[in-house]
Amino acid sequence: MSIIADHLTYIYNKGTVYEKKAVNDVSFSIKDGEYVALIGHTGSGKSTLIQLLNGLLKPQSGTVYVNGEDIFVKDYDLRALRGRIGIVFQYPEYQLFEEDVFTDVCFGPKNLGLDRQETELRAYEALKMVELPDEAFFQSPFDLSGGEKRRAAIAGVLAMKPDVLILDEPVAGLDPAGREWIFRLLSKLRKERQTTVILVSHSMDDIAEHAERIMVVDDGSIVMDGTPAEVFSYGKELMEMGLDIPRVSRLLYMLKENGVNVNTDIVTFKQAIEEVAGLFGKGR
């Protein structure tokens, strides 16, 4: 599923003192199956941008094309679109509401108008996918632990079987094991369902390890768009925007400054190990 953003502009509280241009004339396209990371400091406009992509917000000007169709024309079925472009919001566990986890996960597919059997099948698959133990299925979502709640909430979106999955800081507040688990899940989704992933994150290390492409949002505009190696070569500019570069890149750049000949295009941990071990003749 391809998404094209065409000159999107979104302004909050237009015409008041609180007026704020959150998204300013933004255009880009995302191809089927891509793994894109969206970075920018808090308030840079990335959350607004993702809400425009599935029609939760309507832009003041510009539009979004999904598979070539304008999603803001009058008769476009936005509800069906939301089933195909799923959003996992920040702290998604706060949206749980049903009496038990299973019914909560059924909420999404049921809203898509699927019959009961299909709904339950999808809910079951989604719960299996997030590796919640069977005994948790019929517990109240409010009795789960923090990490389990998040899994249940993510299952609620996965049960709609979206082609595109947008996640707004899915690892916020999670410990290292929880973070690792989220990224394993995303890899699995890409492999088994060919899901397109759009990830909003503050963790440069995680992005460097997983994303294929990075878009940098600053002050409502996309100021950089490229591979991790390309984007992270602008360390100074990123720091000025309140962002950072991955620790692996920092290491390689520092080695280079100290006269060690290393390839600074490397951003992942594994490749960096090979590169440095190679200096000692210990690479594989």
Binding site: D175, R247, V248, L251, F269, V276, A277, F280, K282
Partner: peptide
């Protein structure tokens, strides 16, 4: 126990395993 070590420490550990 669900934690990790700073990236630099992890990196150093990996290099040590390789005999550096």
């Amino acid at each position: 126990i669900g934690l990790t070590v700073p990236v630099a420490a992890l990196f150093a550990g990996e290099l040590r395993k390789r005999g550096v």
